[in-house]
């Protein structure tokens, strides 16, 4: 079996072709090959959520995805979500609520929380906590993170109502 695989995929909308070592996961590919260091490497066994990115529209653990398996896939990272403006209000709420302390978990938190904004616009605090339960914050700043997500949901609902 091959130990190197040629893959072509899109990353944040840009077409990328590389020959990758079959043993590397998506996060080492993004960070090492493409220089996209927003998604963080942490536990590397699927527990902490710091490496959360999107593959084909779904939030996934980047450390539990083989880079070699991504031929034809569409990957979005926190860099892409930031540039597109999709979660600008959420990011501003994180700043306003001081929801990033050391900041290590923040990219994963944002990608995970972005799903709540689209899938559960009326989520309660309890539901927000449940949805981000797979993302660790070792500063234990969860209260502020839930505040920031809740503020964003409330603001979006208010804007929707005015419109």
């Amino acid at each position: 079996m091959n130990r190197r695989i040629d893959i072509t995929l899109t990353v944040n909308g840009e077409r990328v072709s590389r020959s990758v070592d079959t043993r590397i996961h998506l996060i080492d590919f993004l960070r090492g090959e493409l220089g996209l260091t927003g998604a963080h490497t942490a536990c590397e066994h699927g527990v902490c959520g710091a490496c959360t990115v999107r593959v084909d529209g779904d939030a996934v653990r980047g450390c539990l995805v083989l880079a070699a398996s991504l031929d034809g896939a569409a990957v979005e990272t926190i860099e892409g979500l930031s540039d597109s403006g999709e979660i600008r209000d959420l990011q501003e709420a994180f700043v306003a609520r001081n929801a990033a302390q050391c900041g290590y978990c923040t990219p994963g938190m944002l990608v995970t929380a972005a799903d709540i904004l689209t899938q559960a616009p009326n989520a309660s605090r309890e539901e927000i906590r449940e949805h981000i339960s797979g993302n660790y914050c070792r500063c234990t700043g969860y209260q502020a993170i839930v505040d920031a997500v809740e503020d964003t949901l409330t603001a979006r609902r208010t804007r929707e109502a005015v419109r």
Binding site: M1, N2, R3, T22, R23, H25, E44, S69, D71
Partner: peptide, 28 residues
């Protein structure tokens, strides 16, 4: 820690999988 060195192949049908498993042996 990082994953061990290993091969990877995508198979697109069951027939392709049976052939691949025969060729690769029990460690795959």
């Amino acid at each position: 820690m990082k994953w061990p060195a290993m091969g990877y192949a995508r198979v697109d049908s069951l027939d392709e999988l049976w052939r691949a498993l025969d060729a690769a042996g029990p460690e795959a």
